[in-house]
Computed example of a mutant assay.
Amino acid sequence: MNTHPLAAVLSAYEVQEQWLRRSIALVPCGHAFDAVRMPTDLVHTAARTREPEQVRIYLTHTLHGPVLTDRTTHHHYALVPPNTPPIESHPNTRHLGTNAYLGLPRPDLTHPTTHHRCHWIIPPDRHTLCPPQAITALLHQATTTQ
């Protein structure tokens, strides 16, 4: 099963073109992946730090899959398997599945820059998505830490 985010679109060429023009590609959820949108403050609470490298380490060990952040909207997005039941155990999270789109940054955008609003905290690979139970554990950690 190919779970790379590019598998969600009809044409990898279209994604490449969007990345060349805007450094971000609008990709439909619900095919190769769903996503869980979480407020950045919630992620920082769970990680018990705002320091970017420590947050990255925490998310790597906690979520085990691709995560991106959007500094403009102050949200983190964890990619989960398609057809994952909604994970909305916290009122400020949102499940993005069929009929939703997500802007995916170029794979090489793994650090914040002044020119790009989104970057990967944990870049995607071809075979790994965040297990839903890992998202639930992060949300539980954030709730019990507050």
Rank of each mutant, 00 (worst) to 15 (best):
E53I: 02
E53S: 13
E53F: 04
E53Y: 09
E53P: 01
E53H: 03
Q54F: 11
Q54D: 13
V55W: 02
V55G: 03
V55R: 00
V55N: 00
V55C: 09
V55S: 00
R56H: 14
R56T: 05
R56Q: 12
R56P: 07
R56S: 05
I57V: 15
I57N: 11
I57R: 11
I57Q: 08
Y58F: 15
Y58M: 06
Y58L: 08
Y58C: 08
Y58Q: 09
L59I: 03
L59P: 11
T60H: 04
T60W: 06
H61I: 01
H61W: 14
T62M: 11
T62S: 08
T62N: 04
T62F: 02
T62K: 05
T62A: 02
L63V: 00
H64G: 09
H64Y: 05
H64P: 01
H64Q: 02
G65F: 08
G65P: 04
P66C: 06
P66F: 13
V67E: 11
V67A: 08
V67Y: 10
L68D: 11
L68M: 15
L68C: 09
L68W: 14
L68Q: 11
T69E: 13
T69V: 09
D70S: 12
D70G: 09
D70M: 15
D70P: 05
R71L: 12
R71I: 08
R71H: 03
R71G: 13
T72K: 02
T72E: 03
T72C: 01
T72W: 02
T73H: 06
T73G: 00
T73P: 00
H74C: 08
H74K: 15
H74F: 14
H74D: 11
H74R: 15
H75I: 07
H75P: 07
H76K: 01
H76R: 13
H76G: 00
H76F: 10
Y77K: 10
Y77T: 13
A78I: 04
A78H: 04
A78T: 06
A78M: 03
L79T: 04
L79R: 05
L79H: 12
V80A: 03
V80P: 00
V80T: 07
P81T: 08
P81I: 11
P81S: 08
P81W: 07
P81V: 05
P81C: 00
P82K: 13
P82F: 01
P82N: 06
P82E: 10
P82Q: 04
P82G: 06
N83C: 04
N83Q: 14
N83D: 09
N83M: 10
T84K: 14
T84G: 10
P85D: 11
P85V: 07
